[in-house]
Design a binder for these strands. Structure first.
Lengths: 114, 114
DNA sequence: CTAACGTTCAACCAAATAGTTGAACGTTAG
DNA sequence: CTAACGTTCAACTATTTGGTTGAACGTTAG
């Protein structure tokens, strides 16, 4: 059903934007750009308890921005860009709209000057 | 100071992503694409009290995604795209990173096939 | 001037969030 | 096998959030 799909997308956006709204979580994403890292490696620069960091990673995982899988006795995390492009697309519909308006304004000014 | 600026940017991102994380607020932004609207016009489709909607608009205003100014006895709201492009830029640094990785992967596969 | 309108403010409530601690779990090194 | 490691779970607390209501405010129509 279409409504269903819209709600789903909405929930995804909720999760992604909520995940991005916290600086500790953005810091985790930044660290993951250097490559996969264990929970411990991600937690140590965070001025926060280990369990606290694990919760943040859980939020990112829930938003599908991070994947966490077991390896040996540690869990290693990797970046997932898919949901970020979804968020980017959503935002772009607004910035596109804005640029369109600017173009119209420019045209109007040009016309007025002639 | 550089650190100062970084913190400022960070707070801005906090505000913007937090504002975007709520479907009611995204609905308000969507309505504003049709043009400026009063608080009342924005509130009515929201299944929520008037004051509640006003709070949501306050969150958007705080993130500088919406400007609210007085006209007569009502306040009219307009969309501000500036902060959205800031958020878009932030996200893009990640999607760019991702595409770069995909390119490297592609190259590696190509090399392997030769 | 007065009444009604559009909006905000203040106080309050329930639920969610961000964080803590300590115990428990599975895994591996020795 | 046992001990240590890396991580998660459970329980708890303080704070923030999303929402309500009713009073108050400034503005304008009549």
């Amino acid at each position: 059903m279409l409504l269903n799909r819209m709600v789903e997308q909405s929930e995804e956006l909720n999760a992604v934007f909520h995940a991005l709204a916290d600086p500790a979580r953005r810091q985790i994403l930044a660290a993951l750009r250097e490559g996969p890292k264990s929970v411990g490696e991600l937690a140590s620069p965070l001025a926060m308890s280990f369990a606290g960091a694990s919760k943040h990673i859980g939020v990112l995982e829930n938003a599908r921005l991070v994947r966490r899988r077991k390896r040996g006795r540690s869990r290693i995390c990797t970046l997932r860009a898919g949901q970020l492009t979804a968020a980017e697309r959503w935002i772009r519909t607004y910035t596109d709209y804005w640029n369109e308006r600017l173009d119209l304004l420019e045209e109007a000014i040009e016309e007025e000057n002639q």
